[in-house]
Design a protein around this nucleic acid. Sequence first.
DNA 1: CGCAACTGAGTTGTGCACAACTGAATGACG
DNA 2: CGTCATTCAGTTGTGCACAACTCAGTTGCG
Lengths: 149, 149
Amino acid sequence: MASLRLDDQLCFGLYSASRAVTALYRVVLEDLDLTYPQYLVMLALWERDNRLVKDLGAELSLDSGTLSPLLKRLHAAGLVERNRQADDERAVMVSLSETGKALREKAEGIPDVIGTAMGLDDDGVARMRAELDRLTESVNAYREARSPA
Amino acid sequence: MASLRLDDQLCFGLYSASRAVTALYRVVLEDLDLTYPQYLVMLALWERDNRLVKDLGAELSLDSGTLSPLLKRLHAAGLVERNRQADDERAVMVSLSETGKALREKAEGIPDVIGTAMGLDDDGVARMRAELDRLTESVNAYREARSPA
DNA sequence: CGCAACTGAGTTGTGCACAACTGAATGACG
DNA sequence: CGTCATTCAGTTGTGCACAACTCAGTTGCG
């Protein structure tokens, strides 16, 4: 039976874990002068360059209200270029600059550092990821049913 | 072997899950006119009233930079009182108003709604909470070792 | 064609999260 | 007793996250 006690709640555990991981990234990403959300955008671009703002938003579940200023900062840091599409003037293509591509080298070691800090073996990581994905899916489905977009 | 691929990463799963749960709370807490962090403070006070700002901060791992304006908003909403201690003028005691106490009734149903949305049985919740707590602990220990307070 | 509906990016405003700081109150110690 | 370090709450500034909105560009459709 669920109660209103703070320490019963899975949600608080999730919130705490997420903040703890972000705090670790803050330290690790200091070298690269990136915040965690900026690092996520860079990850997406390192994986596949030349993306529309819309597509980055879909992958990270972030809207233009978050991405526009974030991309402006990445541009100011010299890491990405932004160009409107010729065939659709509404759309903006985001591309890595040479500096942005080069930064990938400095990021190579990060996943292992984070992995070590989490103290999970590969199985543990995979299991937890699967559970978290299922949880996200379930929660989003419930919310969308209750509060239709 | 950890890689820089976005969809490999446990951290992104954690970040996504945390945002999904917060988005669900946003809908559920609409009735109470509370944000999720405000709800956490109310939970802490419903559990034990009359707390110093410092103690709330310790329980929720939030500093005064976050709590001071949040408590100001809870006060403006008529839910809490804030009074400086007579024996230590630095400390501020946070107490529930009658309205704040009464709001608890409206919150009684929330844990079950969230539980249903997450689609986990009691065992699943307990297991996940344990894993998340362990993860938080491990990550915080690593970070504190690497970047001493 | 004409125009209404929609789409994509951006802006504005609110509220967290956190670093860095201020300033008053307290405590420790020679 | 004096003074120096510490503690506590609050403020300021930056950067997400998100709702609500604007506005130009595009599409659909009669």
